[in-house]
Amino acid sequence: MWQIFHKLGSPKWFFGIATRLMPWLLAGALALLAVGLVWGLAFAPKDYLQGNSYRIIFIHVPSAFLAQSVYIMMATAGVVTLVWRMKLADVFVKAVAPVGLVLTFLALFTGAVWGKPTWGTWWIWDARLTSMLILLFLYGGAIALDRAINDEKSAARAVAVLVLVGVVNIPIIKYSVEWWNTLHQPATFKLTEKPSMPAEMWVPLLLSVLGLYLLFGWLACLRMQTEILAREQRTRWVKEHVLARRAG
């Protein structure tokens, strides 16, 4: 058991696995995203209420979905960092935080642009948009803290504490923002509330969510590899790896 755990935490082992996994992740991601997005853009039926503007859903929902789960993943890795001091978890949090930030921004941006034809305004202090904005702040804080601390081990542990505090707060923030929202503007139109979505709509949505997940997997692998190389550049296996790649 502990051996497996130890192996899982070994950067060298991960590096090899990632190298083998990445082509599949990328191919799957591009295929799923291409099918999902083209289907959503051109073939899915028009929404009877919102018209064609609802087609933004095929990128809005995947981005929002992933933005939130990346934060949860970071928090999980943060626990691993603090409890078991696994190097790979440190690397994961550092590598993935900017990706989460970009995804959160995308969710906000597409939400705002979607709001213009649907609500008639770019920004609405809607519960979901507001909690997304707060998530953006949380990501920004984690990245800023990571950059501010020079020692990489301390940085990883400090960010882990921050992300954990953030993840405890997320349900509270969500709840309070929803409460605040009902207090200030009752009955707003919900973006994605569709009691019965026809299959021609949710299948492409599912495909693009899966596609973006795979793409995130590829990005995470690549960025983690970069981080591992930068940290372990003086070790023997890195030397063998880079010299072998040059010869071959």
Binding site: L41, K46, I56, P117
Partner: peptide, 20 residues
């Protein structure tokens, strides 16, 4: 054109593709 919603949809997809 997408019944007038074209600009919104295309801007979103454009920004999405560019950022990703």
């Amino acid at each position: 054109l997408m019944d007038g919603h074209g600009p919104y949809v295309w801007v979103c997809y454009g920004v999405f593709v560019v950022l990703i």
